[in-house]
Nucleic acid binder design. Structure first.
Lengths: 203, 203, 203, 203
DNA sequence: AACTAACCGAGACGGTACGTCTCGTCTTGAA
DNA sequence: TTCAAGACGAGACGTACCGTCTCGGTTAGTT
């Protein structure tokens, strides 16, 4: 499955918003309830009260539906985004958000969801792009604002782009989560924040 | 698939080394030839000229076989490990190895291997642990030596462990590779090395 | 499909004759082009440039439409009916018409039409009755005239009805066609005619 | 369905006789229980306790399985065959067997079974041939014996083959059954026998 | 001339069944 | 015993049609 590329047929005018939401909601619910390989299109269809044909009419495969469901959730709950506060203290702000991320990663349903996203991304380039644009990109925008402020306050080097700065504090946590290569604690979050700030500091 | 844990029956008394190698080689070959979800146990068995029963007798599932195949390859080709040279210039050494990694990631075979490893890690905690110990751990040991030297030369802060230091320069590259969130160039490698060294520098 | 009975509901006053003919013509065309199970309502609708809803508004199912199409054709081409000539020689007349039938049966289009009729008859009693009345019955009437003449000429036994006489020479040919149990040749037609006449002869 | 031809592929040596019988028995049972289009491969598989893949491994489609099931039943119950007794009185013997056939045709499950056979035969030439060889042919052999005796006793014309003679008394009944063109009574059976014998009598 | 009502095309929808695929187990026979 | 070969039960996959429905647009046949 998930070998082909995304379809997401256009004509969208006559599309039933009700069916669309039912499918996305069902997908979201199942993602947090079952290990990813146990989630089937039939189960999503049944849960949504929607026919399998309808799902395949609008999504190329299970993965595309799941990713869109997660993106939709992202859009529906902007307060749950990776919003960097701005207290003036960049390291503290980063540490705070990293602690929050670390806490979320301990939640089994968040874990399941991340796993689903990662697996699909790795299996299908089209889905990887979808994830990057619909989920990662949104997160990045939120971070961008805080870094713009930091840059204006002279706390950031000129030779580091937002994407690189973002990677600097997010990638280690993500890497450790994915590989289970070490504990994901608040202390660890603080350490990552400290190192990131040191790396980004001018001079 | 890959829902259960590893078995890897020990007895091995009358085990046919020939069949074992054939299976591992076939798995390795297919990983680089096909998108991961298209690789089936039947295909591996057919390619290896080995029966499916034999595979299931010695490995619990496709994933365990693939991971062992990759670990085996890792063990067979130590020269391809992530060996940090020691020229005394830590940043240059890091930049060099990161450039090498970036080059490898552009190789479709390497890409496919990494993808397989990541997918299996994400699907099965037991395999994730296996990957960490048999592949990641080996890499880490090689890096450890260089960092020990740097630490002795006073180039490293005392409050940063080897694992954290390792993550600092590897995780961003890996994250960018997995998410296709940006270009993987030598310039990028140099930037990551520079930032890592800044973050690790004492004072 | 075709599990329910015939409906043929609405007003018919406002009915578009154009759509009706288009549907019937499309059905007829497809019957001769495709194996029967491959003929779909969607295909008929598409070919006719008519919507599926329109088809289901006027016919209960594919079968009803096909049967009506065939009946319509039957009505449109009376010259193609099973017309028994009357030369005075009953056996020769029968042999002539049977030879004509045998020739027709070799025509793939006719074969396909007969197949469609038979399949629908067998699947739905309502359609079977429709076929009997609108197609079989018409054929029978034509035959009736010739047998009336034969009866008047004392060439027919009193204890044999027209239907039974009809069956006597038509059923074997039809049976052989449907079961492909033997060759359908002019010689065979002559034999059937001879046997029928012997069976029907008085005394 | 049933568009392709018969496959019946693999080795057959390793084939599980148990699964084969379970599938055939289940098919037979369902044919008498449900209208033919309602019989599904899934239902047969479930009833038989056999996997769908096993069914498709050995039969090309539902039709082939059903036909083989009926042929198997034919083989299992030779006493239920169309066995013509030989009392010396050909007409009485024929009338007897036709009366039995007429009685059977009134049985809904026999009716359903015949319908199934006919529909499949009409939809797929390969199945038609299978029916002819595995079912019709067997019946014909039984009839052959009685006609041989009749022929020896000088009760049959020399210019009529067994197949033609068979058609003469079976086809009218079958035709009337299939088209519902008239009542199927013992009196009708007697009439058909009488006409057949007249047609077949020498001189 | 506007109104109304039924028809029409298009095509999305909930369903059912299809035939294929992969999984992991099990059986057979040769070495 | 181990192995190659491969049939098996289980069940998800993605496709094809079914017959129903809603949507606007059009076209009679009134008012």
């Amino acid at each position: 499955m998930a070998d082909a590329s995304i379809r997401c047929v256009p004509s969208a005018t006559r599309r039933s918003e009700q069916s669309r939401r039912a499918a996305l909601d069902a997908a979201l619910a199942l993602v947090t309830e079952l290990p990813y390989p146990r989630i089937t299109v039939d189960a999503i269809a049944a849960r949504a009260g929607v026919s399998k044909a309808t799902i395949y009419r609008w999504w190329s495969a299970k993965g595309a539906l799941v990713v869109e469901a997660l993106a939709q959730q992202s859009a529906d709950r902007p307060e749950e985004h990776l919003v960097l506060p701005d207290t003036g203290d960049l390291e503290a702000d980063l540490a705070g958000v990293l602690r929050a991320i670390v806490d979320e990663m301990a939640d089994p349903s968040y874990d399941a969801l991340m796993r689903a996203l990662s697996i699909e991304s790795l299996q299908d380039p089209a889905l990887r792009d979808q994830v990057r644009e619909q989920i990662f990109g949104v997160q990045l925008e939120y971070v961008e604002r805080r870094f713009a402020a930091a840059r204006a306050a002279g706390q950031l080097r000129d030779d580091v782009g937002t994407l690189e700065a973002f990677e600097l504090f997010v990638a280690p946590v993500f890497h450790r989560w994915q590989g289970a290569t070490g504990p994901l604690t608040h202390a660890y979050a603080d350490g990552v924040a400290a190192r990131a700030v040191r790396a980004l500091r001018p001079g």
